[in-house]
Amino acid sequence: MLYFAVRRLVSALLVMFAISVLVFLIFFATPGVDPAARIAGRNADQVTLAQVRHSFGLDRPLPVRYLLMMRHLLVDRDLESFVNRGSRVIPQIVQAVPVTLSLVVGAAVLWMAVGILMGTAAAALRGTAADPVIMLVGVIGVSLPAYWLGEVVNLITQKQLHDTVFSWVPPPGYVGLGRDPAQWALHMLFPWLTLSLLYAGIYARLLRGEVVTAMNEDYVRTARAKGLSERRILIRHALRCSLIPIVSLFGLDFGALVGGAALLTEVVFGLPGVGKLTYDALQNLDLPVIMGTVLYAAFFVVLANALVDVLYARLDPRARHA
């Protein structure tokens, strides 16, 4: 177990190093991309450009710049934004993380619960009319893009029906969990629903397929021959075995979302999360922030993968000694 964890950690560090180098090269060494020109503004003369270059440290050799940036980012943690001078990268990310985590964790709980319920119900009701109906609902969920759905939800809850049905919906934005848990949940409710709809649909369809396959397995026949109830067979045997691939998918999705893939939902609902931060930084070519958020995202994807591996071994005894 220790060996496993150490190996995981080393490979995670390697992945993050490679990603940081890659991102650095893309933004600093790609021909045609000159951050100094971007920072100095349009039609800046050569003197201004040189000045900017010098003051941002852009005139040093590439490896030195990389190392300097990493030192500021990770060791001194005082890397400053190129665009808003004086605002540091790390605190910005630290501020954005709880927002993203609130959004993604809440949505994940929702979509896992709904997805598992829908998928299992559809598989159990296979052959009846309920199965295609549930799957149709799933397809509809998958087909609605989060940004469109979010806008429609905002339109309805904030404008069209705000005076009647949805008068309790607060304006878009984020309230810290520590400050007011009730308001936090109220603010997050519609972002949660919007984000989880897509994933609930995907997971329900996937799980249905898995459960249907599992119900035809020999071990289910054995379980029937044992005289177990259909419900126990469905939940303790078929569903339990079907969860294994679902969990590995969940780890990847969760990692990516925490890493910033919830961007669209964050932007639509005005949540100042990591996705929004990355989005703004990309708009301004704010390299230090991009670097910070990309590394942060890589960290979460790698972390989520490692967690999935551990969880996978918990769920599937066959994977333990491999």
């Binding site: 397995e217 020999d218 071990y219 026949r221 054995t222 379980a223 029937r224 021959a225 044992k226 005289g227 177990l228 109830s229 045997h237 339990r240 075995c241 294994i244 769920l315 599937d316 005894p317 066959r318």
Partner: peptide, 23 residues
């Protein structure tokens, strides 16, 4: 029927490799 299965009549199947729940 469930009370009969497994208690009064038990059944053993051909392929022991897949007859037990793996988890």
């Amino acid at each position: 029927m469930r009370a009969v299965r497994g208690r009064e009549i038990a059944m053993v199947f051909q392929d022991p490799m897949t007859a037990l729940t793996p988890v």
